[in-house]
């Protein structure tokens, strides 16, 4: 699809959607938001890019292949379950690291955040794989070995 309005709009909208997705990811654990919804917003931005500028541009934006992003997300999410072992707590127990930034400001970092980042990447990777499969030729039909 080639539309000037869509392309101009995408240039403004897509970065804002990415920012919004990061905001949702960050506030997620105790407030509405989280890795899943953040990932979906980010995917919408990337899908918008794909619709406005074509699938090739979408792939360039992602840098890595969507499946690799999903794989990295799965790894990060799985790793977030493990630090609890060092603390002698069960699998997936949330751990918080509260960094004091001075002036009374505290930066809470936690394993749930790490998990959310993993989910965020998995959602982006997974849904982008699907979109790529639908926009381009289905990946199945390059092999034919009897039947």
């Amino acid at each position: 699809m080639s539309s000037l309005i869509l392309r101009a709009g995408t240039r403004i909208l897509a970065p804002m959607m990415i920012m919004l997705s990061l905001f949702l990811l960050w506030r997620g654990h105790n407030l509405p938001g989280g890795g899943f919804i953040g990932g979906l917003v980010a995917t919408s931005a990337i899908a918008l890019q794909g619709i406005a500028f074509g699938p090739a541009s979408m792939r360039r934006t992602l840098v890595f292949s969507p499946a690799v992003i999903a794989g990295a997300g799965v790894l990060i999410a799985a790793l977030s379950a493990l630090p609890a072992a060092l603390a002698g707590l069960p699998f997936f127990t949330g751990l918080w690291l509260k960094l004091d930034l001075g002036n009374g400001a505290v930066l809470p970092l936690s394993t749930p955040l790490l998990f959310d980042i993993g989910v965020y990447l998995t959602v982006i990777g997974g849904v982008c794989t699907l979109i790529a499969a639908l926009e381009e030729e289905p990946a199945l039909d390059d092999v034919e070995t009897g039947g």
Partner: peptide, 15 residues
């Protein structure tokens, strides 16, 4: 559960 998850991630990255 963790081992197959890690295998999934690792084999995806090594695709």
């Amino acid at each position: 559960l963790v081992v197959p998850i890690l295998s999934t991630g690792a084999t995806t990255l090594a695709h």
